[in-house]
């Protein structure tokens, strides 16, 4: 049921993803603001299948040279490729940002196989990689499946500065015009076999909602 309805290939499922900022209000209290968030879902067969996007429409938004999105997609498996459109919530003005604030990313994946995974996250500007983080995670058996957890991974300086600058733009259309050329590519690989387990292309706009960050997920196909 997960496949074609959630971010899941035949080998790995993304359970959760969030990028956040946390500020200590007093010694016992923290406030957390989610910039983007994919929460745990329990899809059923009555839920609609994911819409498809032709991957050629977004090639130039991601690295195109050796090891780029095109080459990765051709290597497959093609059921591991997804596009996530985020409407990011930048409205954290109620929280006092300062040297004590923490910017982090948390994510969780699950599989039925015990693997060691590497998670590469590339931040791209005008389709060119500017920074990459590579993390290795080991499986933990939980409730009959293997779970991989990246908990509170610190955001890099580039991203923190980017968010600061974005938040200070006076109009939403200006933020969206900057975000048009800002993308993130996350590739999860089986460390031992080098098989692609998941490849998620993230694109962004600023949220207009009062309910926080929103998103849409698409399958990437070549028609």
């Amino acid at each position: 049921v997960w496949q074609d309805r959630t971010i899941a290939s035949s080998k790995l499922r993304m359970l959760e993803f969030s990028a956040f900022m946390e500020v200590q209000r007093d010694p016992d209290n923290y406030s957390k603001h989610l910039f983007v968030h994919i929460g745990q879902t329990n899809p059923s067969y009555s839920d609609p299948l994911l819409e498809a996007v032709d991957i050629r429409q977004i090639y130039d938004k991601f690295p195109e040279k050796k090891g780029g999105l095109k080459e990765l997609y051709e290597k497959g498996p093609q059921n591991a490729f997804f596009l996530v459109k985020f409407w990011a919530d930048l409205n954290s003005s109620g929280m006092l940002d300062g040297p004590g604030s923490f910017y982090g990313v948390s994510s969780q994946y699950s599989s039925i196989e015990n693997m060691t995974i590497t998670v590469s996250t590339k931040v791209c500007s005008f389709g060119k990689q500017v920074v990459e983080k590579v993390e290795t995670e080991y499986a933990r058996m939980e409730g009959g499946k293997y779970v991989y957890r990246i908990h509170r991974s610190p955001m890099c300086e580039y991203m923190i500065n980017f968010i600061h600058k974005l938040k200070h733009l006076p109009e939403k259309y200006m933020m969206n015009s900057v975000l048009e050329n800002f993308t993130i590519l996350q590739v999860v690989t089986n460390r031992d076999t080098q098989e692609t387990l998941l490849c998620i292309a993230f694109v962004f706009e600023v949220s207009n909602s009062e309910h926080g960050a929103q998103y849409h997920v698409y399958r990437l196909v070549k028609e």
Partner: peptide, 24 residues
């Protein structure tokens, strides 16, 4: 062909790509 420099709005993307979901 190359789609470089083409604004996202002019690409072939589903209508939902431009519709922010209303629910949290």
């Amino acid at each position: 062909g190359s789609v470089e420099q083409v604004p996202m709005r002019k690409r072939q993307l589903p209508a939902s790509f431009w519709e922010e979901p209303r629910l949290s």
